[in-house]
Nucleic acid binder design. Structure first.
Length: 683
DNA sequence: CTAAGTATA
């Protein structure tokens, strides 16, 4: 098998990839999911007609159906609304309900899987509603760290995770008379749990003759029957979107080396398409994206290749924000922009100007193995749903083209839908949250049941942590009740709750906060050397946890106007470290509420490592032979990930935060452990 | 031949 590093070398010798042959038919024979609309406001020409906000609202395809929709919502206690991209369902439906006062004296909740979406939609709707009051009054939002609502708020946008938190305080969600679960097709773990909670709340409120709860489930057009069946065969209504047709092409033969095929396809497009038509390539990860970006840059400079200049924009979530912004800036005159992205570009980030999509057909996805307790991050084929999602990205503003680096029959053999997150995640957080609501996960009404083994594994972990007395237990111990207060994996909640015993609450709060977000260390492949050198300043011989703490201690002593430049100099991720500081504040508040004394161990940081073991006791590995470790718990062979400070050293015992298998095939030596600390076991 | 998809509380 050829490695992706070999490819760079091959391309640097300016050899061009061989052409990829596509079929000539477009995707018109595919299920018709992409429909045409002639709306002028979407024209990309420069004399765009300026419309008032109210005119814009009236031009949305949903506007004509307003009365019909309201009638359906009034009549049904549960309704499924299928809406294509651009139908305006997220912004308009809550306003329609509000102006018809269907919520009576309660509130309308609309959940979103992502914070940015909840915030930006709320701001938009607050403007549209035109009462001049701005966000936080009639229309508000609630996300972690930010509650922009008032007692007068009628329409409240929130993240699905936030509504789940609220349900843990009041499982009947009495504050709301209408709950809209938006983007339900994404099937986030939080939305899946909310399905059951909201359904039960509606039933209980009816039985107890409390004020009724109306449920709207909004989704892209997929798997209606599945949703409807779960919600007692409720009715579904379809809303037309506003997108343009996309011509879909398949390769005639399978391409195992999808990276090279993507590059070749890009240059095929590059030669013929006008330079202001941007291209979006879907690939799987940072390393791969940077490699392909480099190949395209090199080839684009080759005079033999021809075509306009090329601006290459890599796009993945862990990029520094400034780099990510480059994606939104239009390319200069006579220059083609090509965005090479992960699945962030599928849902989270929308880029205008894209007319061509190249879909590798691959995605990196996480799966959880209850038997071993191990996570895998594996490159695998996308689902058919996902491939249409990617295709749709070419038709947001005008007719587009999508080149699929797989054959039609390969497409047909893809699984129809993506496996919902709840079926491929560690369930200990879900299990403890449901217990706080008095429900054992085994008896919970899931739309798609998680694996029995996953639930069992979760309960075994909760038992070891002392959150429950037994795996059948339907209530939490007093420790468990404290643990569930924290917005954390139960293992980390446990560590915080043990910290006062070890006299290191200050330090543990910092470390847990740092571990609960993304890495604060910048890890761009091109700057690896410099980043490594800069990191030496914070290095602790005891490993990554204390190294993180050292960096965080320095950061906290800086005045706020020095933080940015300090982060830049030390290859620290500004966004991630300031996020960790916010998380720490939140955790600190919870500790104060629980009356935990906030003590520090100063330089006696041995206490910190001892304390970490109280939650991560299953995450211990022993040196087995040269560079090879074996986990004490499940006897799995692992090795230290190169990002760890302890990589290259061989302490006898290590404590780690996480194990992940990253390679394409199942070789035991491919399991790597992240976030390592040395561990001396005293006799 | 050393390198983590995306979210969230």
């Amino acid at each position: 098998m050829e490695s992706k590093y070999g490819l760079i070398a091959k391309f640097q010798t300016k050899r061009k990839p061989s052409p990829v042959i596509f079929n000539n038919k477009n995707g018109a024979s595919e299920p018709k999911r992409i429909s045409l609309s002639n709306d002028q406001t979407f024209d990309k020409n420069k004399n765009k007609i300026k419309l008032s906000m109210q005119e814009q609202r009236q031009r949305l395809p949903i506007y004509e159906k307003r009365n019909k929709l309201l009638e359906l919502i009034r009549r049904h206690s549960t309704l499924i609304i299928l809406g294509e991209t651009g139908s305006g369902k997220t912004t308009q439906i809550p306003q329609y309900i509000n102006s018809a006062r269907l919520q009576n004296n309660g509130k309308i909740a609309i959940t979103q899987p992502r914070r940015v979406a909840a915030i930006s939609v709320a701001i938009r709707v607050a403007q549209e509603i035109g009462d001049g009051l701005g966000v936080g009054e009639t229309v508000g939002y609630t996300v972690r760290f930010e509650d922009v609502t008032s007692p007068r708020t009628k329409i409240k946008y929130l993240t699905d995770g936030m509504l789940l938190r609220e349900a843990m305080v009041d499982n009947l969600l009495m504050e709301y008379t209408v709950i809209i679960l938006d983007e339900a097709h994404e099937r986030t773990i939080h939305t899946d749990v909310l399905f059951g909670i909201v359904k039960q709340a509606q039933k209980t409120r009816e039985e107890k003759k409390l004020r009724p709860l109306k449920i709207l489930v909004m989704s892209a057009t997929m798997d209606v029957d599945h949703f409807s069946e779960y919600f007692n065969n409720c009715q579904a209504v379809y809303l037309e979107g506003r997108t343009y047709p996309v011509n879909v092409y398949y390769t005639l033969t399978p391409h195992e080396d999808y990276q090279t095929a993507c590059v070749a396809t890009f240059f095929k497009i590059h030669k013929q398409a006008p330079s202001n038509h941007d291209v979006l390539i879907f690939l799987t990860g940072q390393e791969e994206i940077e490699a392909v970006a480099q190949q395209i840059r090199v080839l684009a400079r080759d005079p033999d290749v021809g075509g306009p200049a090329v601006k290459v924009c890599p796009l993945y979530a862990s990029q520094p924000t400034t780099q990510q912004m480059a994606v939104f800036q239009p390319a200069p005159e006579n220059t083609r922009k090509v965005i090479i992205g992960t699945n962030v570009a599928e849902t989270s980030i929308t880029i205008s100007g894209v007319r061509y999509v190249i879909d590798s057909g691959m995605v990196k996805a996480r799966t959880y193995h209850p038997a071993t307790g191990l996570d895998m991050l594996k490159v695998q084929r996308i689902s058919q749903e996902q491939s249409w999602q990617r295709t749709g990205r070419a038709g947001r503003e005008a007719e587009g083209f999508c080149y699929r680096i797989y054959t039609r029959s390969q497409y047909e053999s893809l699984q129809k839908s993506t496996i919902p997150e709840i079926q491929r995640a560690n369930l200990s957080t879900v299990a403890i949250q449901l217990l706080a609501l008095g429900i054992h996960a085994v008896y919970f009404d899931f739309m798609d049941k998680p694996l029995k083994d996953s639930i069992t594994a979760a309960f075994e972990q909760l038992k070891l942590l002392g959150a429950v007395d037994g795996v059948e237990s339907k209530c939490l111990t007093s420790l468990g009740k404290k643990m569930v207060q924290f917005p954390l994996d139960p293992r980390f909640s446990k560590i915080i709750l043990s910290a006062s015993e070890y006299g290191c609450v200050e330090e543990i709060l910092s470390i847990v906060a740092l571990l609960s977000g993304e890495s604060i260390f910048v890890n761009a492949p091109s700057k690896r050397e410099q980043a490594f050198t800069a990191r030496q300043k914070f290095l602790s011989p005891y490993g990554d946890h204390l190294t993180l703490l050292n960096a965080f201690r320095v950061y906290n002593k800086l005045s706020s106007n020095n933080q940015r430049s300090w982060c830049h100099e030390h290859y620290i991720h500004m966004r991630n470290i300031s996020y960790a500081a916010q998380v720490r504040n939140q955790l600190l508040e919870i500790c104060q509420r629980l009356e935990i004394p906030i003590v520090s161990c100063g330089n006696n940081t041995d206490q910190v490592r001892k304390c970490l073991v109280t939650g991560l006791f299953t995450n211990v590995a022993e040196l087995h032979k040269e560079k090879q470790y074996i986990t004490v718990d499940k006897r799995q062979v692992v090795s230290i990930h190169p990002s760890s400070i302890l990589h290259g050293q061989q302490p006898h015992f290590v404590l780690f935060t996480e194990v992940v298998q990253t390679a394409k095939f199942w070789h035991s030596k491919d399991f790597q452990i992240y976030g390592c600390s040395t561990l001396k076991i005293k006799q």
